[in-house]
Nucleic acid binder design. Structure first.
Lengths: 190, 190
DNA sequence: TCCGCCATCCTAGCACCGCTAGATATCCGG
DNA sequence: CCGGATATCTAGCGGTGCTAGGATGGCGGA
């Protein structure tokens, strides 16, 4: 009875250790360095243990991504809350979004460019992802004009995502980034 | 003398065959299906032959990407040329960009999300990439207002890229795409 | 207290990947 | 016709994600 409780607790802790190890390793050396063998060594278990917790490596990455959604939502909420005006909020939230992507590139990749098997368009989307999207929506609400709020939010999000990914993959040079961000914010603030 | 000429010609043909095989395979089954072994089988040579033409698999993907740049530039040029007005040109070019990405997803991936070792920010950027960017720039030139042309072009491009990648990875649902594109075009047309 | 069962975990291995060294075959010029 | 350079292949290395099957250790019942 109590032994079973302990077992389950230990199991949950180990699962969390796997996700944490994957996250740390990805942040430190990129996702290419995250192999099931290194992950197993990190948690001091053998490889097959990973597969008793997750369906595969993709599922581990998805779990890391879900944690990232919470962080991003928090960062956006903080930026919006501290903004002096609605227009300033758009700029601040945009800057917070880009800063998150730049400071945690591996996390951002797991959330938005890799790990396709996350439930997105289906039901049970990660709640923190919904929260982050809602922050974006509330930020742009005052400036949507006569457009649909959801549509504008998604488009604004796409602009941010495009800036982030193109710059990080070398397609856009680092200098000029601030000006591009300013243009995006300006075009979406009226 | 003439034998050497034939040798070089055959070699060039084989190199083109490698790129074509990689491209076809990627378009048909995605880049994951493009392995050096399958590629070698496709051109009816052994694996090491690939490495006498290209430094590695990434270089092959880069060659495919370069071909894609030419196609994209042509598509954008055609869309711009046939537009009735400057404002309509923005919409048409945007639609052409998205259509290209949707119809050749593997090609688009090689060009803009994978194959990082392409010369982008350095010198000798692929000329067709420059041409495509120039088409975008000429398209938005009438609507830049008092912003910098290059900055606006890059930002507009980012918006298109974000729409494309987020939708194709399932982060944005297919319906609503036209409205999002319309919002992007609208926000950049003034 | 001891035993047999059952869940847990690990060792070993599969099929595949990108890539390369060394052996082999082919073709050319003298 | 032969020697040598060139082109090509066979075989293999170290790595990947993932899994089957055997060892191990703690549990409940006699």
């Amino acid at each position: 009875m109590s032994t079973q409780g302990r077992r389950e607790r230990e199991r949950a802790e180990r699962e969390q250790a796997i996700v944490a190890a994957a996250r740390d390793l990805a942040l430190a050396e990129g996702w290419d360095a995250v192999t099931t063998r290194r992950l197993a060594a990190e948690i001091e278990y053998s490889q097959p243990v990973l597969y008793s917790h997750f369906k595969g490596k993709d599922a581990i990455m998805a779990a890391v991504a879900v944690e990232g959604f919470a962080e991003l939502a928090d960062a956006l909420a903080a930026a919006r809350a501290s903004a002096a005006s609605p227009r300033q909020a758009v700029a601040d939230v945009a800057a917070a979004y880009v800063a998150f992507a730049e400071q945690r590139p591996a996390l951002y990749d797991a959330m938005f460019t890799l790990a396709v098997d996350l439930p997105f368009a289906t039901q049970d989307v990660p709640t923190d992802l919904v929260r982050g999207f809602a922050e974006l929506a509330e930020t742009v609400r005052p400036v949507v004009g006569d457009n649909d709020l959801e549509t504008v939010t998604e488009t604004f999000w796409s602009g941010l995502h495009g800036l982030v990914t193109l710059m990080r993959s070398g397609r856009l040079r680092r200098p000029g980034h601030d000006r591009r961000l300013a243009v995006l914010v300006d075009r979406f603030s009226r």
